[in-house]
Design a protein around this nucleic acid. Structure first.
Lengths: 177, 177
DNA sequence: GGCCATTTGTTTAAAGTTCAAGGAGGGGCC
DNA sequence: GGCCCCTCCTTGAACTTTAAACAAATGGCC
């Protein structure tokens, strides 16, 4: 099976448009993207699982908490920052709590609300494992790209990220599900 | 907690180097990358789960099979193309087999070997769902990027992907685990 | 106050992934 | 042949994520 590079336009009335297939060049870009993203994800997950005992996403949660005022964030706020669902976050925080790296606290203003709070142990784990993680990211990404490429990558991924979370309501965003 | 943009070099003898922290600019690039990649992954997974009843990775497996001669590939070969572990692939193929989209066949040359074969039903599912998927990819990525940006993205991700699977042996690649 | 839609976060079960272990065949070497 | 090590793939348990359903609290409105 091979995706055609182009195709004739449809007749006149029907919504089922002729698919706008990817050109060969677009195919190549897309496949390198998927390969790179898949391998990178696997690589970092493995590095962190080995050195920090948690997956990459969980590590990211600790980072967000560490950067927040009083090392705490509301669940939904954290889900939004991490771009994940609240359900997933609930499970993740439960696990991190079991490790003693995060603690839950009730929100005084809103009795429905919960804070996730980074504990001292959690902060320490982060401090101990951050250098290894940064090094892995450098080796895999920054050390291999020119300054111009780094700039492009940031710009491109910003466009994609913002495109998927438009300012207007109605988007199917993970933390609203 | 804030990652320093730079730091003094170490004394003289010790391997534990001062971490090469990311600069603020590198941080921004990295965070846009992670956000974009996370949101995109979520978006495509959801689109395909809704319209094709399978996650993005499984869809990718069907595509690889469809492109292969006689619509079949050895398990390890397929794992390599998809950049996943053989274990993950075994589970995935088991599921796709249950759906009737893939069938297993013994390899005549090597009694250890197995082929994964795309069935007619599998091919049909692919044909029916490909247009919607291509459209989702276009909307999220290609429609938003200039030709130059597309080219850059391909080049950059190729560098990252190749960096993670070097020609020399010794790399910790998923399909060798 | 009372009503109702929405927001917040959790829970359960099912689905998917990882990890470690293992069965079976291949292939070199003696 | 017999031995050993390696490759191919699968399995089951543990862990993570998704999907759907839910309780509790909020906030707007009358």
């Amino acid at each position: 099976m091979k995706a055609p590079a182009s195709a004739p336009t449809t007749g006149s009335t029907a919504p089922p448009q002729e698919p706008r297939w990817l050109t060969d060049e677009e195919q190549r870009v897309w496949r390198w993207f998927m390969e790179g993203a898949t391998l990178l994800d696997d690589h970092l997950d493995r590095q962190l699982q080995r050195d920090a005992g948690m997956p990459h996403v969980y590590y990211g949660l600790l980072v967000k908490l560490a950067e927040a005022p009083r090392r705490r964030l509301r669940m939904t706020e954290l889900a939004m920052l991490a771009k994940i669902t609240r359900s997933r976050l609930s499970h993740a925080i439960a696990r991190l709590e079991k490790n003693g790296w995060v603690r839950r606290e009730d929100c005084p203003d809103d009795k429905r609300g919960q804070f996730a709070v980074l504990t001292d142990e959690g902060l320490q784990v982060l401090r101990q494992t951050a250098p290894g993680h940064v090094e892995a990211v450098r080796q895999a990404v920054f050390d291999r790209l020119s300054p111009e490429q780094q700039k492009s990558l940031g710009e491109i991924m910003r466009i994609i990220a913002e495109g998927l979370q438009p300012a207007e309501a109605g988007a199917d965003l993970p933390w609203l599900r």
